[in-house]
């Protein structure tokens, strides 16, 4: 029997100690949080039913994010504001629900929707490169191609990152620390890790990027609301409607 369910998209932020909780455990965390918040989530059929839940893009351990997403199917709901408040009442420090929107019946699920992501990249104190990275960043970004060697289990592959970098800029944050903003392809076929770009950047100027040098925040995750030929990248929750 088909049940009437509604799909909701939940946007959340992850910071502080929560950076060290991996993707699968974040999924488990939200399964339990949804129970604690008494959200009327829908379950799959079968002997061991599971919550109908789909996460967008996994976030690596150590990264912060201001724009993580997952979708849930619910059997009933109140207002977005009320559900957000209920969820935030059962969050731990470092986890915060930012927004809930309602998806149309035919909306692609969160994971399939991911097209791009926007990152802030800082150098950890004591790990800044020796060259003038702020000054050189635009020169680097201006190169016609950014070749890297991507190692897989079987082979090494030459890869040009440039087409997947949609924009790059440097700003200074409120503490006067320079921040590199990277807007890159995050689709399943062309995902670009910010660390890969930063490795290529350092190597271009004769330095190796040391391990643990970067502090990375995913600022938001984007879907393509346009077409393949004419992409229009919008935050994942812009696809949904307020309720």
């Amino acid at each position: 029997m088909e049940r009437e369910t509604v799909k909701l998209r939940i946007k959340f932020a992850k910071s502080g100690a929560m950076r060290f909780v991996g993707h699968l455990d974040v999924m488990r965390y939200f399964q339990k949080a949804i129970r604690r918040a008494e959200i009327d989530i829908a379950y799959s059929e079968g002997f061991s039913p599971h919550q109908l839940m789909s996460f967008a893009a996994p976030l690596g351990v150590g990264l912060e994010s201001n724009g993580e997403y997952f979708d849930i199917a619910v059997q009933s709901h109140t207002t977005a504001e009320d559900m957000k408040e209920r969820l935030n009442r059962v969050m731990v420090p470092g986890m915060e629900v930012l927004n809930i929107t309602m998806l149309g019946a035919h909306a692609k699920n969160a994971m399939a929707s991911v097209a791009a992501a926007d990152y802030s990249v800082r150098f950890r104190q004591g790990y800044e490169p020796g060259f003038d990275w702020v000054g050189r960043s635009m020169e680097f970004y201006g190169k016609p191609s950014i070749m890297v060697t991507k190692k897989t289990k079987k082979s090494e592959q030459q890869l040009d990152l440039k087409p997947g970098i949609y924009s790059m800029s440097v700003k200074t944050d409120e503490n006067g620390v320079p921040v590199l903003r990277l807007f890159v392809d995050a689709s399943s076929s062309g995902n670009i890790k910010p660390s890969l770009v930063m490795e290529a950047f350092c190597r271009e100027y004769g330095e190796e990027l040391p391990e643990f040098a970067l502090l990375i925040t995913r600022e938001d995750t984007y879907a393509n609301a346009g077409t393949a030929e004419n992409p229009r990248l919008v935050p994942l929750d812009a696809v949904g409607e307020p309720f």
Binding site: G16, A17, M18, F20, G62, V92, F212
Partner: peptide, 26 residues
């Protein structure tokens, strides 16, 4: 609230299952 951790990021990123050491659980 600024969350204080006893272990530096570089250590937590190096060890297996860092969530064993951060506290902060529900």
């Amino acid at each position: 609230r600024k969350q204080k951790l006893a272990l530096r990021d570089e250590i937590l990123l190096r060890v297996e299952k860092p969530a064993r050491y951060i506290g902060n659980e529900v």
